[in-house]
Write a protein that binds this DNA or RNA. Structure first.
Lengths: 198, 198
DNA sequence: GGCCGTCTTGGACAGGCGTCCGAGATGCAG
DNA sequence: CTGCATCTCGGACGCCTGTCCAAGACGGCC
């Protein structure tokens, strides 16, 4: 096998692990399945990771690194249009790989249950909030909205609640129409919070 | 061991299973852990269920049987007040046993991954919608709101999206303040949809 | 009282699991 | 070229998993 530094093997295994979890779920993500996916011998796994849990934690943290959906805003769009467009774009991305979102949900549940990983879901949320916050700030400055009375971070939390609701409900029903109606319903509220109207 | 009809043992095991999943997560819900919780010998399990998966499915369906939160409305309350009060009551119940909500999430993910159980999440959602629909109809008739242009079922779906968002986000962060702010933000929208204002 | 459907139960089975050991290969630093 | 830190990897360890069998105990009905 081609010789690689441990850091590179680490990333290979984390990515392979995420692929396996997305395909088979947490239940099927055994050490043997993961090394098979990565194409490395079994013993490599525990040369890199002290335990399977350590790898799961690494994988969950890895998810948070994925950048948000930076959008190019059309000129003359209202705030609500921009929010709706961004939300819809996120939803399209979601629909391309819904099994990944299910995987993330499973990993977060597993981490919640595992004492050594229980702090991670909060940290991942923190990353989400930061990335989303930047996007929202960008939108605000682009549209010339100043001196917000609702802090950006609070608006980001609302947006996250909205996407979380869509995620959970969609994964149960696979009903995209209902999701679109949900988007139609929440977007005005989110835009209002972002635009600071009362 | 006291002799019981299979149907009674079935319910005992389902309830024990749910307790174990709530306490240890899906990962720790082994057949042996479940029979220990129920206080029956191992072999009883496969006298009752053909497989562990069959029991998991039964447990997930069992969840949907739990009745919704029927509320006594104070006189002279506005529609928004009633919606907010109901939502808050649900949230209080949620806070009493959040680990159960996490368990439900894990079971739903597991079912999604298991071909023979993949149809269940949709069915459970259907039960939720029905129960919630009845509650909403009750509120509507109580407040004398007639001829809805937005079908009750659609409003119920919106409410479900809102509670799902709260559930998912809370389980990551355990941030009840953020949840309350979310409730404050969505309730007017939900009330508007229920009250049929545009 | 004897029968028979229903329920109980100890024990075993094969297979999969996470983890670990120790010997060998590799390739840069001196 | 030698030395040493780094990486590779076959194979095994003990434990736990879901599932099953076959023998026994119960208890209502003829």
């Amino acid at each position: 096998m081609t010789r690689k530094p441990a850091s590179a093997r680490r990333q290979d295994l984390v990515e392979a692990g995420l692929r396996v979890i997305a395909r088979e779920g947490m239940h099927g993500a055994t050490v043997r399945a993961i090394v098979a996916e990565a194409g490395v011998p079994l013993a490599t796994f525990h040369y890199i990771f002290a335990s399977r849990d350590e790898m799961i934690g690494e994988a969950y943290a890895y998810i948070a690194e994925v950048p948000g959906t930076g959008a190019a805003l059309p000129d003359g769009a209202t705030l609500e249009d921009v929010v709706r467009a961004s939300f819809l774009r996120w939803f399209e991305r979601f629909l391309e790989h819904p099994e990944y979102e299910l995987a993330i949900m499973e990993v977060m549940a597993y981490c919640s249950r595992t004492p050594s990983l229980a702090h991670l879901p909060g940290k991942v949320q923190e990353h989400y909030l930061e990335a989303l916050g930047e996007l929202l700030e960008h939108v605000r400055s682009e549209l010339g909205i100043a001196a917000p009375a609702v802090p950006t971070r609070d608006v980001a939390r609302l947006v996250l609640h909205a996407t979380d609701g869509l995620t959970y409900a969609w994964l149960r029903t696979r009903d995209s129409d209902a999701s679109l109606r949900w988007i139609d319903a929440v977007v005005p509220m989110l835009a209002a919070a972002l635009g600071d109207e009362r």
